[in-house]
Every structure is written in structure tokens, then in C-alpha cells.
Amino acid sequence: MSFESTVAGPAMTAPPTKKPAALARGSAHRANGLWPRLRTIALALVVPVSLLVLWDLMVRWTGTRLIPSPFGVAVMMWDFAFGGIYDDAYSGSLPIHFWKSVQRVYGGFILAALLGIPLGLMLGRIPLLRAMLDPMLSLLRPIPVTAWLPLSMIFFGLGPKSAVFLVFLGAFYPILLNTVFGVKSVDARLFEAAGMLGCSGPQLFRSVVLPAALPSIFNGLRLGASFAWILIVVGEMTGVPEGLGAVIMDGRTLSRTDLVITGMIIIGITGFLSDRILVMLSNYFLRWSPQHHA
């Protein structure tokens, strides 16, 4: 597992490269007609559909019993969601597993945002705080989040709390670092402008620092949310009866690869949808900034 190392990667904290306005307008225009939109969807489907076909062919050709065919996974997915086919412990249990995981992911994620954003705003603006906390945070940051698993099990016991803690840790750093980065890259003129208009002290945080750092904060939130989904699986792999990560772990012990793949696909789709929600929020809150429309 190498994903932990990317938490601290500088590339992950950089803001999105600016898209030329003309280019953005061009693509918006292209997405207007019905035919062009169909074309976009068709193009996006080419690779996944070919992979599905390839998967199916390979399963038939090798005759393996370790990997189910795409159709087998589809049946499993249906049963997992609605039941009525296998009628085992997993039939129709998607809602409960899904709901548990979503709660833990967003619990940890929201906790990370509630702590990471204000702390980042202050770290970016208050040198004293930075001098006190920066060295410690930089030392803790390279430790892979999964390495905290044993300790977190001692702190929080075997169970969901431990998973939430891991999710929190995973989401916290990208949110914090991007917020600090956003604050530090605010144009100094804007602080001068605010100062000469009579805005200072705590008002400055709400009226200038927060909105100016918002593009970067949303970057951090998106990264944080994706790490949260990664870490929920790790967090739920031990001592949690319900959750998508637990389902994948069970599938492994029971040698039910169809269940494993079903869990993977559902996590993938959910992670994607949760990112789209963040993008929608970001587009709404950053409507003043032509560069930050994703």
C-alpha cells in the first residue's frame, strides 16, 4: 500500500493549474448540445467497457475459479443490494453496510474539516502559532496513517471509533496543509486594502482570509475526502462487524471474490459521487473565480 506516502506529497497540496478562460468557455459550449454530450459519455465508456469485455474473456479463457465473471459480480451486486438470489448473510445488506461506512467517513471527515480549516487559517496568519506547531506537525506528517492502526486500537478499542480516528487522521493533513497554503498565498494587497477600509483583527479572518483561501481549502477538502474513503476500508478491516471495509475483509476470509469486487465497486462509486458533491459545492462557493470551476 503506497497511498499513505501521497498524503504529504507536495504535488497534492498545489492548487489546480489555471485553465485558460477561453478553453473553459469552449468546453462549456461543447457540452450544450445533445449530440456532443452523448459523444462525451460514449468516449468515457470506451475504456471501461473494453476492460469488462477483456475481463470476461480472460475468465472464460483461463477457466479460473478464483475470479468471478463480470456477470457473476453483477448478480452478487444485485443480491447485495436487494436480496432474493443467494439469500445468505449478505443478501440485501448493502444499505446497512453502506450507511455505517458513510457515517464513519463523514464523521471523521467533518471532524478533520472542523479542526483543520480553523487551525490552518490561524497557522497561516499567526507566526507564533506556526513556530509552536509547525515542527511537530511536520514530524508527525510523514508517518503513514495506517501505522497508527495499532495505537488507535489501544486508544479507542476494537471498533468503529478506531476507524473514525484513522479517517480523521487521513483527511486532516490534506485539509490543514491546503488551508495553510491558501492563506499564505493570499495577495498581500488584499490585506492592505482591508486595512485601509477599516477591517482588522478577527473580522479579517471571516472577511478576507477565509474567502481568499477558499479555492485552496476546497482542494484540501476534495483530497481529504478521497483519503477518508481509502482509510475507511483499512479502518473497518479489524473488529467492525458492519461496513463496506468489513464486507471486503469477510469476502477475503470466505474466499468470495464476487463479494470483494462488489464492495470495491460500491466504494468506488460512492467515493466518486461524494467528490462530485464537493465539486458542486466548490463551483457554487467559488463562482466568483473563473479559474476554479472544475
Binding site: 494587497r189 488584499l190 492592505e192 486594502a193 485601509m196 477600509l197 474567502p211 477558499l214 466568483w288 473565480s289
Partner: peptide, 12 residues
């Protein structure tokens, strides 16, 4: 009150 060459308006 200062008027800057590069405007320094609040973009949001």
C-alpha cells in the same frame, strides 16, 4: 484610502 495600480478588489 488607497487606490492601487493593480486595483486590489476583493474577487469574491
Amino acid at each position: 484610502g488607497m487606490v492601487f495600480q493593480d486595483y486590489a478588489l476583493f474577487p469574491w
